[in-house]
């Protein structure tokens, strides 16, 4: 598979949030403002790309060499957890405001299924190291694209006249499903 196809596939066609429906927790939780959504997508991009690469290395050079394929999930979670801790420290140091607004969703990247999903699918698709890096980054950008677009819509929803019963999460879920339908249009692209 060419790298271009991997990029397009990761961002648009197999968008982790809108097509695979993974990583919904931060997608709904941190999408009230474009700014925090952008910060979150940056954090996820960092974690996802690095997690993809390190888990690939761990899988290829440790697990497969020792024939420990069954330890995949445990090992990957360990790698992701360590990375998230690291990202948390960095964000707390350099942007306390972002740290505040991300709140609980930052440590929750640890158990974000999108991150684990990317790592496992990289192995499943039998990607090489370069393809893994590109696919992880593209998937993360896809996640970021979805969450930032969604946050933009939700910012405008705040100002719109919505029936009382639909305010908050209900209308957000409607919006998410409509976005998902819209992204379905990319399915025939490649």
């Amino acid at each position: 598979m060419s790298l271009f196809v991997i990029i397009i596939s990761g961002i648009l066609i197999n968008n982790y949030v809108l097509s695979r429906i993974l990583g919904i927790c931060p997608f709904l939780g941190v999408s009230k403002q474009v700014e925090t959504a952008f910060g979150m997508s940056m954090a996820v991009t960092f974690v996802m790309t690095l997690a993809g690469v390190i888990t690939w290395l761990a899988q290829t050079y440790v697990l497969e060499k020792l024939g420990l394929g069954y330890m995949q999930t445990v090992t990957f979670i360990l790698v992701i957890a360590a990375l998230v801790q690291f990202v948390e420290m960095v964000i707390q140091k350099f942007s306390p405001t972002l740290y505040q607004s991300l709140g609980i969703y930052l440590p929750l990247i640890t158990t974000n299924c999108a991150v684990l999903g990317v790592s496992i699918l990289n192995i499943k698709e039998e990607f090489g190291l370069l393809e893994t890096t590109v696919n992880s980054a593209a998937s993360a950008i896809g996640f970021g694209l979805a969450i930032v677009l969604f946050a933009g819509i939700r910012e405008r929803l705040e100002l719109s006249n919505i029936p009382e019963a639909f305010k908050g999460f209900p209308i957000a879920l409607f919006t998410a499903s409509l976005m998902s339908l819209a992204f379905l249009g990319f399915a025939g692209l490649v």
Binding site: G67, L68, T75, L78, A82, V90
Partner: peptide, 21 residues
């Protein structure tokens, strides 16, 4: 094997995080 590999990775990440903190 699993004990050493997982423990080793844990040790490396732990040391890295301790330094980062």
């Amino acid at each position: 094997d699993p004990i050493i590999s997982l423990g080793g990775m844990g040790l490396i990440f732990g040391a890295g995080l301790a330094y980062a903190s």
